[in-house]
Nucleic acid binder design. Structure first.
Lengths: 226, 226
DNA sequence: CGGACTGTTGACGTCATTCAAGATAAGTGG
DNA sequence: CCACTTATCTTGAATGACGTCAACAGTCCG
């Protein structure tokens, strides 16, 4: 991982998918590429926001913290951008961003970003990005409010598998405790939920999970009560 | 409430705040204004989405339903627009929208909306709107995950009062059971939470709530555990 | 006056967290 | 490469918060 990025790399991101070479140049020229190590903090709640972040490599968790508790709002992967709201709105970050493993991030200064969103094509891409995240957050609220821990985990595991797949094997993309936080439960509850799913045709070893019967899990989620 | 809206009315919405007369004409021309009565449904989960909705009068709740449970994602007021995601993404609604009391709504067909977002000024306004909603939803996740019922209610009540106000009186904007659902709790829990807050300087009668000491409530929310 | 709706209160049950300990895995230095 | 330390994960038992069920009190409207 180094501090250089080419147009090709930006072109692969959702934000700059169809952008002209001219714009990409402008972006690469005016922005900075930073690398972060595991657990390193990009920003914290309350800090002044002066740039937006575009993930090039690795993953970053955005979370809230209060009284020892930890609520993961989202996990950003390559191609995703964040901290838009802080730039456009309050001017301060309202959450904390922390690298999950090593990351490479393009950091676009606010003034440059303000110019970029005047380009209709980019603005529309941003709108798409935002609605997607809105959807993800809505799903998260739904999951937390209307499902219990075991169901939430089942739902999450299914979201990792290809649609309508039969027996299949998945590798958990993060540490279990991080997934637990993302699903709004304690690590202990996560562990127990995983245990419960054994009786619904699931086996696991380390981070490798085998779903013997995705259908049964799907039923579990849809079900009124477990 | 009737089916007519003027440019002035649109001009007051966040979306069309600075729009040209030409655009407003286009919108008024191509859209439909509908009125809904209390509890009436605008759309349900899974239905095809062919328009976006802009609230002119009244309020509308967006919620998810599963196994008898009810999770309110947001409550839209005058000037707010929704169902963007359904238009831009899946083509189907992922939640249910229901009128709270009587409502008047501008319904903009998808094709017209697609043309509108090519206008950079409108696109930027939409981006602002979306980031604001993203913030609201993030707050909601935070509230549900890291506060308990009494704290959530305190936090909500404070959000209804002017910032840094002293002793003050608020009127709950909705039925208590709706607020309860919005805060992710049962009506009974809401009632008890309200009870608990009595010892923190709160009195209430019907929907009128008096906060003797907003500071104490704020402390309650910030506090690690209640 | 009677019925439906909204909100309150109490008793009880359930699920998830909390606390504590142990097991497994991973990383470190000799 | 192995002993040792440090994280991560699992398991058990106890607590506690919230939900559930049921009954009742106001309130609104016909």
């Amino acid at each position: 991982m180094d501090g250089i990025a080419g147009q090709a790399e930006l072109h692969r991101t959702e934000l700059f998918k169809g952008a002209t070479a001219e714009i990409l140049d402008q972006v690469l020229e005016g922005s900075e590429i930073k690398t972060y190590t595991n657990r390193q903090c990009l920003f914290r709640t309350g800090q002044l926001a002066d740039r937006i972040f575009l993930v090039l490599e690795g993953q970053i968790q955005i979370y809230l913290r209060r009284g020892g508790k930890h609520a993961v709002l989202s996990i950003m992967g390559p191609g995703e951008a964040f901290a838009l709201r802080a730039i456009l709105g309050t001017g301060r970050h309202t959450g904390t961003a922390e690298a999950i493993g090593g990351c490479r991030v393009l950091e676009i200064p606010a003034p440059l970003f303000s110019r970029l969103i005047c380009d209709p094509a980019i603005a529309i891409r941003i709108i798409h990005m935002l609605t997607t995240r809105l959807q993800a957050l809505s799903d998260q609220v739904g999951r937390i409010q209307l499902m219990q821990t075991t169901q939430r985990l089942a739902d999450y595991l299914l979201s990792l598998t290809p649609k309508d797949s039969d027996v299949c094997e998945v590798e958990l993309p993060f540490e279990k405790s991080l997934i637990a936080a993302y699903l709004g439960m304690e690590p202990e509850s996560f562990s127990r939920a995983l245990m419960n799913l054994r009786s619904h045709g699931l086996t696991c070893e380390g981070r490798k999970v085998r779903l013997q019967s995705p259908g049964a899990l799907k039923a579990l989620c849809t079900e009124g009560r477990a």
